[in-house]
Write a protein that binds this DNA or RNA. Structure first.
Length: 486
RNA sequence: GGCGACGUAGCCAAGUGGUUAAGGCGGAGGUCUGCAAAACCUCUAUUCAGCGGUUCGAAUCCGCUCGUCGCCUCCA
């Protein structure tokens, strides 16, 4: 079964075949670092991360590049407002990107190139376009000659003449044609600049991505992704620049995620209706935020609300409860019966993995993939209850263990496993070991109380533990405890 | 004005020609329990915005209408 990807360029799902399998060359447009990124930006990063993880899970070797745009009008403006030097500001928000991205379980890219570190490559690329007659210099500015590029508008489905009629394009007297866009901007007084053959200046917005993609991935890349507002003009221009310079196909599969909306309206920095990732993570744990972002298909709009996050929280809680309860149950069972952790999944268990993969193969359908996980969770709950009643049944124990492993593995593919369950319990400090033993002791005392029908005492222990975030579950085999998260 | 997306239960969200329309959240009842919690079982869309059409058969294809949103300008 092969992976199907919806390609913006062709407006249909296509079978995914990278140019040089198993290698996949992938580029995602990263943040412009002048502020914390917002939850809508986070959607792009999380979705692309899940796609990357799934490609790797499917046997591909992904070389993944995500840039930082660290020089741009917005950064300059923000720096002027706050008085912070523009490069310090950019550096600060690059670090903030990593803080939030790490929290959300977004894996680091193979390379995180920065625009300012690629000025020579940018200049080189601009020169090539000038030499090819696709760009021209006016007063230290360099513009791309849109009408000279043969397939301009092909990606976004725009027609050059209609674009002109729209006439919303910025009018600059320097340009030969209003549609032309800047490759290199002459420095205005007080602005940062680099030396170039056309005088002091800085790169235009689109050229940096072309330069970084060409530098780190080559002339033709497999997947290029970004939010759907980047289709035009950013990606259209990027494509024109890259193909104009190399004469080669630039991107084989264009992927664009839908917007995160708020009250059904696009969340955007210019509308001011956004929540930064920092604000959201202050209210909800990363596991919940990530789950929420993957709960709709990536190309569809997703509306942000507290209710939606609360729902995600409950849903994550259901998965967590099922897995932790089952794992705790094994602690009550005769170790001789408990199967090794790498138990092979039975055919019954494997069907959930097939359903999961089938969903992900179909243009990364994460909602359907999550549904498969929930079906596995339902089975896990049912079987774990049977095991609690029949703890000496090795076949049952193997099935339960197989399901536990499966759920962990599938959550891992979505990048959720670590966020929900933590890094594992390998290094338990002496303090928490002591806490664990004290907890066991309390559970034993409560057991004695219950045996003597001293229910007031038993319930007191249970209630007090609950206020500490420890919830008890009485099973036929004994009592297990689960720590509430956060 | 041009181009495009979407409208599925109380809510979120899959499904894009064919047995009973996934899954989650919420709600109702029941089982288990000393009581809980968690879990389990049952119920919660005869119907997919509306109207026409194609077809043996449509939520699914086509047309129209209504509604919501996006891109065409910096934005993931």
């Amino acid at each position: 079964m092969s992976i199907q990807i919806y390609n913006t360029a062709t407006r249909q799902k296509e079978e995914f075949h990278p140019l040089n399998p198993p290698q996949v060359l992938m580029y995602n447009c990263g943040p412009t670092v002048y502020d914390y990124f917002h939850i809508g930006n986070a959607r792009n990063f999380v979705v692309v991360d899940a796609i990357r993880r799934y490609l790797e899970f499917s046997g591909f070797r992904v070389r993944f590049v995500q840039n930082f745009t660290d020089i741009d009008d917005k950064i300059i403006n923000r720096a002027n407002e706050t008085g912070e030097p523009w490069d310090k500001l950019a550096e600060r928000f690059i670090q903030e990107y990593f803080v939030a991205a790490d929290a959300l379980g977004i894996q680091r890219a193979t390379i995180h190139p920065r625009a300012t570190e690629h000025i020579p490559q940018i200049i080189n690329l601009v020169q090539k376009l000038i030499d090819a007659g696709l760009a021209y210099v006016v007063d230290g500015n360099v513009y791309f000659r849109v009408r000279r590029f043969h397939s301009y508008g092909e990606l976004s489905g725009k027609n050059v003449d209609e674009l002109e009629e729209g006439a919303r394009v910025e009018l600059e007297e320097h340009k030969e044609d209003p549609l032309d866009f800047a490759l290199w901007k002459a420095a205005k007084p007080g602005e940062p600049w680099w030396e170039s053959p056309w005088g002091r200046g800085r790169p235009g917005w689109h050229i940096e991505c072309s330069a970084m993609a060409l530098t780190h991935l080559g002339e033709t890349i497999d997947i290029h992704s970004g939010g759907c507002d980047l289709v035009f003009p950013h990606h259209e221009n990027e494509r024109a620049q890259s193909m104009g310079a190399t004469g080669k196909p630039f991107v084989r599969y264009w992927l664009h995620n839908g917007f995160l909306t708020i009250n059904k309206e696009k969340m955007s920095k210019s509308l001011g209706n956004f929540f930064t990732i920092k604000e959201v993570l202050a209210k909800y744990p990363p596991s919940v935020v990530r789950f929420y972002l993957l709960s709709a298909h990536y190309r569809h709009p997703l509306d942000y609300s507290d209710a939606a996050l609360e729902e995600a929280k409950s849903a994550v809680g259901r998965i967590r409860e099922a897995v932790l309860s089952a794992e705790k149950l094994f602690e009550l069972i005769d170790p001789a019966i408990a199967p090794p952790s790498e138990a092979e999944p039975s055919a019954e268990v494997a069907k959930f993995e097939s359903a999961f993969c089938e969903a992900m193969d179909d243009d990364f359908n994460t909602p359907r993939a999550i549904a498969a996980i929930f079906e596995a969770v339902a089975d896990l709950n049912a079987w774990r209850l049977k095991l609690a009643q029949d703890p000496r049944n090795p076949a049952l124990a193997a099935d339960v263990a197989g399901l536990i492993n499966l759920v962990h593995r599938l959550l891992g593919v979505l990048g959720l496993d670590t966020l929900i369950f933590g890094e594992g319990k390998q290094d338990v400090g002496t303090e928490s070991r002591l806490a664990e033993e004290l907890l066991q002791l309390l559970v034993k005392v409560r057991k004695l109380a219950r045996e003597q029908k001293q229910f007031a005492i038993a319930d007191y222990i249970r209630d007090e533990l609950a206020t500490l975030g420890i919830r008890l579950q009485d099973l036929p085999t004994g009592t297990i405890w689960i720590k509430e998260k956060e």
